[in-house]
């Protein structure tokens, strides 16, 4: 490869390209413990899986169900913890700790949007986030940039996310400063009439649940991205 080709490539994200003695020690201790039957590989997987598989899927399901069932929607708005049970999240017992740590208090509030009211969630003091139902927070959610500005210039910040709201829609910034964690229940978009719960859940992306986006038919987190031909294709 010529040096000229190199300049056109994105550098890969850095990795630690070295095995440390500590990494080896961790593996050795774990494997010996399993070998001696002190615990099983399944025990180990159960814990690590829990930490790695948290994601926005249960919250998306909650919203889809609420769109289809007005009675369930009432439960969501009244008692988010109770409503979460129907999508498989027990705020107390799903967490391995079984009581809620300071970073995962057990109170969920579901903030219902209307055609004239749009909620958006932030934690201005740190980065509180409803992890049991939404997974780990995105990097930008934790930045001082987002935390300071959304509460002061919400329309500008939402516009930066590509969400421009008309004047007749009021914005309500929800600052998650105490023991409640919040998700947004957006308005069901047009063009989804007759959809199933599965179809609806697909368009409720993480950003919709934080409130910096609104659901749109065809826009899903897992959607195929367009593939475009290279401008300067590699010459063999």
């Amino acid at each position: 490869m010529s040096s000229n080709d190199k300049e056109h490539l994105h550098p890969p994200a850095p990795v630690v390209d070295e095995v440390s003695d500590f990494e080896v020690l961790e593996i050795a201790v774990r494997e010996l413990a399993i070998e001696k039957g002190l615990f099983t590989q399944e025990d180990h997987n159960q814990w690590t899986d829990y930490m790695h598989t948290l994601g926005p899927a249960p919250a998306a399901r909650l919203v889809a169900k609420a769109w289809l069932d007005p009675e369930y929607k009432k439960v969501c708005v009244e008692d988010g913890v109770k409503a979460s049970l129907d999508v498989g999240i027990d705020w107390v017992n799903t967490m391995p700790t079984k009581f809620g740590t300071p970073s995962d208090y057990c109170n969920l509030r579901v903030m219902e949007d209307t055609p004239t009211l749009k909620h958006v969630v932030v934690c201005t003091l740190c980065s509180c986030y409803p992890r049991p139902i939404l997974g780990q927070s995105p990097e930008w959610y934790r930045t001082p940039n987002y935390r300071r500005r959304i509460v002061r210039w919400p329309r500008q910040v939402l516009a930066e996310f590509g969400l421009q709201l008309p004047e007749d829609v009021e914005i309500r910034v929800v600052d998650s400063n105490q023991k409640s964690r919040m998700i947004v229940l957006p308005v069901r978009p047009e063009g989804t009439e007759g959809w199933t719960e599965d179809q609806l859940a697909e368009i409720v992306t993480r950003d919709c649940l934080i409130g910096v986006a609104v659901p749109k038919p065809g826009v899903t987190a897992n959607g195929k991205r367009p593939v475009r031909p290279a401008v300067n294709p590699y010459k063999h």
Partner: peptide, 9 residues
């Protein structure tokens, strides 16, 4: 995370 799981195991 693997170390935490080992301790818990």
């Amino acid at each position: 995370i693997s170390l935490e799981a080992t301790c818990d195991g």
